[in-house]
Design a protein around this nucleic acid. Structure first.
Lengths: 114, 114
DNA sequence: TCAACAGTTCCGAATTTCCGAACTATGGAA
DNA sequence: TTCCATAGTTCGGAAATTCGGAACTGTTGA
């Protein structure tokens, strides 16, 4: 298991962000993560309601999100903690993530009160 | 040559927009179109400075932009007139296109004064 | 009728995506 | 320790997508 790659803020490319968020499954994952007070582990996010994402696919989704610069993943014991880089990202690309989540009908910034 | 398909405003999907604009070549084309007072024909947009896009690829780029809802193409004599649907789109997805173009470093909304 | 031009369609090669199966890493129980 | 369960990654191959040259279509002007 090679160490996970995370791009530096200045290396984040808009095309990678847009590509990562052009897949509704990844958007659903990202939006859950953005609103989650829970730790954002992979398995916790596999269930999209209408379908359960196979774990190899899920792992790949996380990789795409991570390498595009949208999230940070770190191992914590057995599991992986994923969190968004939304504050950083909003500094680099003002308004972008918010506009995208809004377009998908996932109003951002409202941590789910669960 | 079958008639060109344009989605109705309400059928435009955010994933299609993001996908279309996740390719820097398409963004360059779209940005030129957004800033163009010139008619926006295909051949006028083929030259990206660093490379000339082959015409079948260009045709495909226009198809992706059109079917995602970003542009309208209509035949005018021998050539094709392409124009953005940015006003409509901004109504449906407020701030989205602007944020994307800004992220790419292509400040929108400033029609080129040529 | 024909030639020129703008753009589209076709199709095969190269690339990418998807996901099951096999694998790796960590922590707890025996 | 050793073994097992759990969480996630990597591998590999089938399916889908992308790219672009060559052939085609539609329009105008000679």
């Amino acid at each position: 298991m090679r160490p996970l790659f995370h791009p530096a803020l200045e290396d984040i490319k808009p095309e990678a962000i847009l590509y990562a968020l052009s897949d509704p499954e990844r958007v659903a994952i990202y939006a859950k993560l953005a609103g989650a007070s829970s730790g954002g582990t992979c398995s916790a996010l596999a269930d999209l309601g209408d379908r359960v994402i196979p774990k190899s696919s899920l792992s790949n989704h996380f990789k795409v999100l991570r390498e595009s610069g949208l999230i940070i993943s770190e191992r914590q014991g057995v599991e992986m903690r994923n969190q968004t880089r939304c504050t950083e990202l909003d500094e680099r690309f003002p308004g972008l993530i918010k506009a995208i989540l809004t377009a998908y009908g996932q109003p951002p910034g409202q941590p789910k009160t669960d």
